[in-house]
């Protein structure tokens, strides 16, 4: 029965039946707001904004700088500053280990990037927080880097942008973290005295000690649509008042309505908004 003989050899080591499927894991993302299924590359190309409903996903610290700086080019400062674990803190895991894991995962030493570069042709200082690094929490390193960035802005008389994304002060550095609020606020007082403009951009989420210091001290405080912004977190408040919180409480829109934000600006408009505000304050670049 040669006419029935197979000419080609069968595939060696075939994939087992239960693994025979196209791998789509991680390629598609479901929008949390409109439930649309989005191709991940589309989402990335759209700066992590849902193309269907304009829901703003969280954006990493580095991509934020790419969004703002001309030609995606900037000079980073103080990249080597790292926490010294002042309390030798340990909860269910040692803080030092949490730090190492976060550093390895994100390729940064702490929860913030500080940089300088051109924004629509104007030299600006920009700080960008990374929520993935221990909840974007502020310890001595974040406090020091922001304070240095503010002092740099002051020395160069160049405007400042801080993009906040943080759960608040870093518990594992105890009262040292708390003092960072005062340290940064004091530096911003000097910047204010010198009339160097500062725009604070609040993104999802900005709560606790970061809101209660630099995030609320901008000449302009602006936020991304839908961002959670507050002092006490929603869970803490629910525990205190023992009631469900109203819909939309502590969103950017809620704060705008209550008079604590100057504008809610979508991510695609952010660079334009900032460039125009600086032009208003300082004249053409």
């Amino acid at each position: 029965m040669t006419w029935f003989k197979r000419e080609k050899k069968s595939i060696e080591n075939p994939t087992p039946v239960d693994e025979r499927r196209v791998r789509t894991e991680g390629l598609w993302i479901k929008c949390g707001a409109c439930r649309a299924i989005i191709w991940k590359k589309d989402l990335e190309a759209n700066w992590e904004v849902c193309p269907k409903c304009d829901h703003h996903f969280r954006l990493g610290a580095r991509r934020r700088l790419e969004l703002l700086f001309d030609d995606e080019f900037w000079t980073e400062f103080d990249a080597g500053l790292a926490s010294s674990d002042p309390l030798l803190f340990s909860d269910t895991r040692p803080y030092a280990q949490r730090l190492r894991d976060a550093q390895r995962k994100l390729g940064m030493k702490d929860a913030i990037l500080t940089a300088e570069g051109k924004l629509r042709g104007r030299q600006v200082t920009c700080c960008s927080m990374e929520f993935g690094f221990i909840g974007g929490s502020m310890g001595a390193v974040v406090g020091e880097k922001v304070a240095r960035a503010v002092e740099r802005s002051l020395a160069q008389k160049q405007p400042l942008v801080i993009i906040s994304c943080s759960g608040g002060a870093r518990m594992m550095e105890g009262t040292v973290s708390l003092m960072q609020l005062a340290k940064v606020a004091a530096a911003l007082g000097r910047l204010d005295d010198a009339r160097v403009p500062f725009i604070s951009v609040l993104t999802d989420p900005t709560t606790g000690g970061v809101t209660a210091s630099y995030a609320m001290l901008g000449d302009l405080n602006i936020a991304e649509p839908g961002a959670l912004i507050g002092f006490a977190g929603p869970r803490v408040i629910e525990q205190t008042i023992r009631q469900k919180l109203p819909e939309g409480f502590q969103t950017a829109e809620f704060l705008l309505e209550h008079g604590f934000l100057d504008a809610v600006v979508s991510r695609k408009e952010l660079k334009n908004y900032i460039a125009q505000a600086f032009e208003f304050f300082l004249g053409p670049a």
Binding site: S213, M216, L217, F231, H258, F260
Partner: peptide, 16 residues
């Protein structure tokens, strides 16, 4: 930490 305090800007008051 309450609703009214948040509405009136607890964080802003502290920061200032």
């Amino acid at each position: 930490p309450g609703v009214d305090a948040e509405e009136r800007g607890q964080a802003e008051a502290i920061a200032r």
